[in-house]
Structure formats: structure tokens, C-alpha cells
């Protein structure tokens, strides 16, 4: 059965508009980063890599990027065990007060980011750890934790309790069962969840804005601060770093678990 022409036209026109809107900023930022002029004009005048040279030699930017990487790494390292254990527990066991627990674990989604950020800012301030890098990583982990738990529970359909019983029957003790049977079953969820956590923390802006100061500024905050003063092509070149990171994560996602995992119905 082929779709009627009018349906195809409507769908394709709307999808075309969405595609245009989705990709326009990426394309324009890419284009602007290669300009040889000092300001961003359209069409760009000339091709050069001068802005990439400029950002590569900028110590402040390199520091901000390294800090962003550190934050993302801390966030992911914490999220993997915490989210995986919680996800398996939610998917495998009948838990008392499960509904309330789910609502509680969804709090990072339901509390607005500005609220979470300011709350953590006050809390960290009182603990005297504001102005360090690792609290930002923890904060990013907290606010995005539902993504990790969701990813693990989504792949928990592969979790067959009979397999664990079979392992036990063959003499495997609990920890060996966990590492050889339970964990491999949810591995796709763990991988997609941790990649998601990494890239979200790398891009995290508002909470970082609230938790950083001049010495601990992360790259998205740095870009935001520079946007407000003046628009120069070096910002476009920095932005391309983010585009490259996003592309790497997408390639990894596709290689390791397949992007189709996000289309599955639960």
C-alpha cells in the first residue's frame, strides 16, 4: 500500500521545515568558523583556519574545555554504578512504595533546573566546597540521573530472571551472577545512558553558571559570557569543538548500541 500523495507532501514539507530548523545553527556555526574576516558576515569572505589556531593557543579556553571534560567524566563515573544499580533494582524487584520512589527519583526532572542549581549552590556554599570542580560533576550527575536510570530500565526487558536462577543452579555465587548474567543483559542501556550523561554534562550550562566562578568556569559558561559582549568568529570555532564532541558521541552510540534503540516502544 502506497501513501496518498497529499499525505506524503504534508509530511515531507513539515519534516523539511524541522530539518532546516534543526540543522541551521550547526551549519551556520560551522561555516562562520572558517571565515577569514574579523567579523561574521554572510556570505563568508574567504576561507581560513586562523580562528582554530587562535582558540588552540588560548590558554583560558583550553582550561575551560579541560574543566568541562573533567566535569563530564566525574558525572559519568558516578552515574554508571548509581544509575545501573538503581535501574536494575527498579526493573527486577517488587519494591515497597515503588510509585513514590519513582516520583522521588524523577525529582531532578520535575524541579526546574534553576531551582536545582540554586539549591545546590546554597548547599555547596554552606559545605564550603563551592569553587571546586568535582561538586559541579556531582550536580550534573544529580540533575541528569533520571536519564541513566531510564536507559537501564528500558533495556531491562532482556533481563530474564530464569537466567539468573540457571546461573545459580550451575553453582555461580551472587556476585559472579551479577557480573556475568545480570550486567551483560542491561549493557546496551548502561552504554547509551553513560554516553548521554557524558554529553549532557559536557553541555550543561545553567547549573554550571550558578556553581562556577571566574576560576572554575566551564566552556559553555565561557561561551555564554563572551556572547554577551561581542560576536566574533573565534566563538564559532569553539562551538565547532562541541559539534565535534556531539558527532563523536553519536558515532559511538550508533556503533555500540545502534541509534534505533531510542525508537523502541516499551
Amino acid at each position: 500500500m502506497t501513501a496518498p500523495l497529499s499525505k506524503s507532501i504534508v509530511i515531507w514539507v513539515m519534516v523539511g521545515l524541522v530539518l532546516l530548523t534543526l540543522s541551521a545553527p550547526t551549519v551556520v556555526v560551522l561555516g562562520a568558523s572558517f571565515t577569514s574576516g574579523n567579523i561574521i558576515v554572510f556570505p563568508p569572505n574567504g576561507f581560513s583556519l586562523q580562528w582554530y589556531g587562535k582558540i588552540a593557543s588560548d590558554v583560558g579556553l583550553r582550561g575551560a574545555f579541560m574543566r568541562s571534560l573533567t566535569v563530564a567524566a566525574i558525572c559519568t563515573v558516578i552515574a554508571i554504578p548509581v544509575g545501573t544499580l538503581a535501574g536494575i533494582a527498579l526493573a527486577k524487584y517488587a519494591i515497597k512504595f515503588e510509585r513514590s520512589l519513582q516520583v522521588y527519583l524523577l525529582l531532578p526532572f520535575t524541579i526546574p533546573l534553576i531551582g536545582s542549581g540554586i539549591g545546590l549552590m546554597l548547599l555547596f556554599g554552606q559545605m564550603g566546597i563551592l569553587g571546586q570542580i568535582w561538586p559541579i560533576g556531582i550536580a550534573c550527575c544529580v540533575i541528569n540521573l533520571p536519564f541513566m536510570i531510564w536507559a537501564v530500565t528500558a533495556s531491562a526487558a532482556n533481563l530474564d530472571p530464569d537466567l539468573e536462577l540457571a546461573a545459580a543452579n550451575c553453582g555461580a555465587p551472587p556476585i559472579a551472577t551479577f557480573f556475568h548474567v545480570t550486567l551483560p543483559a542491561v549493557m546496551p542501556g548502561v552504554i547509551s545512558g553513560s554516553l548521554l550523561m557524558f554529553i549532557l554534562a559536557l553541555n550543561e550550562f545553567l547549573v554550571s553558571l550558578l556553581l562556577t566562578d571566574a576560576r572554575t568556569v566551564t566552556l559553555p559558561v565561557q561561551i555564554y559570557n563572551s556572547i554577551r559582549s561581542i560576536i566574533t568568529p573565534d566563538l564559532a570555532a569553539i562551538s565547532v569543538v562541541f559539534i565535534a564532541c556531539a558527532a563523536i558521541i553519536i558515532a559511538l552510540l550508533d556503533r555500540l548500541v545502534g541509534l534505533d534503540i531510542f525508537l523502541k516502544s516499551k
Binding site: 564559532a236 559539534i243 541509534l259 531510542f262
Partner: peptide, 25 residues
């Protein structure tokens, strides 16, 4: 796959960079 990539690329790029792109446009 194309539609998925076109979706994930902006999703993973972050708000500030996208806002910056719109400033240019």
C-alpha cells in the same frame, strides 16, 4: 538513520551553542 542523526546532533550540541548559531542567522 539520517533523521536520527539530524535529531541527535543539535540535541547533543547544547543550548548555548545553538543560541549562538541563531544570533549569527
Amino acid at each position: 538513520k539520517f533523521l536520527l542523526i539530524a535529531l541527535f546532533l543539535p540535541f547533543f550540541i547544547g543550548q548555548v551553542v545553538r543560541a549562538y548559531g541563531w544570533l549569527i542567522i
